[in-house]
Design a binder for these strands. Structure first.
Lengths: 358, 358
DNA sequence: ATGAAAGCGCTAACAC
DNA sequence: GTGTTAGCGCTTTCAT
């Protein structure tokens, strides 16, 4: 129970306190045999270095913090996984905090990370039109899935491109009557819709129908709309359906089938955000590669960039420019699959199968 | 850039250092007007208390750590959400670490949390037959989804009961020929299968068929098996299918439908782990309530229990018993739904719709 | 490679 | 209520 300190280890190993510290932080300064003895003493005593003391004494922290608005959302999970992978690849650890849809908790975790002297903090702010970044603080900070003209680092997806790519694909597949649906209250989804609208304007010969309903973007909302569209007389029925999210799209596929039509033979369906949780059984969904993972990776890279800049500034003695505004946009690309009549690739990526989320 | 300390705040507010500390930790000892002035100074300076210094000086940590083996698995997410909710309800924060399937990372995060003097640590160990808990350390610790006779706190699901409940439901629904399938390599799933087997023994008049294939428990594995079963001649065809996981079950439903039969009219289907990510479109799946959420909640309660015990021991001066073995088993209950011919409840829980995981 | 010592920012105990 | 001070465990620096 009594906590083991570096002193105890030193005594047990018969060396000086400073030597134990060196084994931990600068092993190259210590003779191998000594290292061995010290390590053994640590194991014997079950020693775990006190992080607080380490940090307070000026040790370097190799941990990043990530504040997510929720943990039951595929997009945020993609971010978490991308960030974890990239952080680990660069020798950093990652701690994740779930703000559980509460702005108070979001602030709390943010302050906690800052106060913990982590090497950097990433945050996906709660979706909100009025959101503003905080003033630059003492630790590197990156905002994910949002943009701003204020000083800071921002990584987002090109939502308009996501909409554009899917729509261009529809045209290429010979669509004559396209139905677009999904709740576009969120800024990100509105951009997706705008990309779709842009391509629509460029193709006046194709009929576009925008269904703007009080859908909450749940699978069952897509189901209802899909069923309704499929029950129309053939002449008024769309031959291509675009949903702004994958979850809506799989709902639509189920609804179309429930009405007795088939996908992609009668109606083709595409989603828009590469959500690996969206699985329809039998027919794989055409969508856009999941940008969350890449956003997480890019966020970590921005963090490391800030650390490098700060290190350099410290060497040259020049102050860091606190007013820079850096923005990264993650590139989107289409994943064309069965639901729009494409043949599945032989070695298709199992990452996009719901099964991995068992 | 220069970090703001409690000293700076004190100077800015024109009070003593100790007063600022009191505003932070014992506001009741400070006059309201003073509190106000200090708070204002904090805001003006952008002060964030240094957690390391706080902890090192003996402050109480109100943060729990949770080490998960992966973040792309519904069960672990249930745990994270349950733990977060219960922790928050009790005034604690929760930090999540993703070991990303690496035992080295698992150890690393565990050591980090211990060294960070968090108030308690929960860990869902990587599924492994040879797993043993670590020796009791200085911080409260709870292991999730595993059991052991070694000293420690353990919270798990009653996997055998999960299998038993589903199978009893099958009998009640009039099943005559039950097909059971799923990869039972993991200990947890083997227990589920054993619960099924137990009920099978008690009902010799019902035919049970155990399909033990090299399935990886992905949705597409369930799809193949479901299709194959449905294509059998009617006399050899099961009238009830039990999959050890929900993901397999939804795959099976899709497969059965692809073969031209319908669920639940021709074949009834049940899953076994209440995975909210399993969504089939149209027909809702009979399954067992998701135990992950409850396991996370129970884990936090065990952590708090250990903290209480330690507090009490400190008061009485008696040493804490380090050899106790406490085990909690999360109760399972059936969610009977359309896939086994039950009528959906009018106000059915939206939590179990994939849509919330959009 | 060792031993001694300063000090990181804060909390809690103390005297005022 | 306020101001002062010891010391938490560690890293780093400096002399040896």
């Amino acid at each position: 129970m009594a906590k083991v300190t570096i002193q105890d280890v030193a005594r047990e190993a018969g060396v000086a306190l400073g030597t134990v510290s060196n084994v931990l932080n600068h092993p190259e300064r210590v003779r191998p045999a000594t290292i061995e003895a010290v390590r053994e003493a640590m194991d014997r005593l079950g020693y775990a270095p006190n992080q607080s003391a380490r940090l307070l004494a000026g040790g370097k922290n190799v941990t990043f913090g990530l504040v997510l608005p929720r943990l039951d959302h595929g997009f945020s999970l993609q971010i978490a996984n991308g960030a974890q992978t990239e952080a680990h690849r660069n020798g950093y650890d990652l701690l994740i905090a779930n703000a559980a849809n509460s702005e108070a908790l979001e602030d709390r975790y943010l302050a906690y990370f800052k106060g913990s002297q982590v090497a950097g903090v990433m945050m996906q702010p709660m979706a909100d039109r009025f959101w503003r970044p905080a003033a630059p603080g003492p630790v590197p900070m990156v905002y994910l899935d949002v943009h701003s003209d204020a000083p800071g680092y921002f990584v987002g997806a090109d939502n308009e491109a996501q909409g554009r790519l899917v729509t261009e694909h529809a045209i290429e597949r010979g669509a004559r009557h396209v139905a677009v649906f999904g709740q576009t209250e969120y800024v990100q989804l509105a951009y997706r819709a705008s990309g779709i609208g842009r391509v629509a304007q460029d193709n006046p010969d194709v009929t576009f129908e925008f269904i703007d309903e009080g859908a909450r973007n749940l699978a069952r909302d897509g189901y209802e709309i899909g069923r309704r569209l499929a029950e129309r007389p053939a002449s008024e029925r769309p031959d291509f359906v675009i949903a702004v999210t994958d979850v809506l799209a799989i709902g639509a596929i189920a609804g179309i089938r429930a009405a007795g039509l088939s996908v992609p033979e009668d109606i083709r369906v595409a989603g828009g955000d590469g959500n690996p949780l969206a699985w329809t059984g039998g027919v794989s969904l055409t969508t856009i590669a999941p940008p969350g993972y890449e956003i997480g990776r890019r966020g970590v890279q921005f963090l490391i960039e800030q650390i490098e800049v700060a290190k350099l500034a410290e060497l040259t003695g020049e102050p860091v420019d606190r007013t820079v505004n850096r923005q990264a946009v993650v590139r989107s690309f289409l994943l064309a699959r069965t639901s729009t009549g494409m043949k599945p690739l032989p070695g298709s990526n199992p990452d996009f199968d719901l099964g991995t989320y068992l």
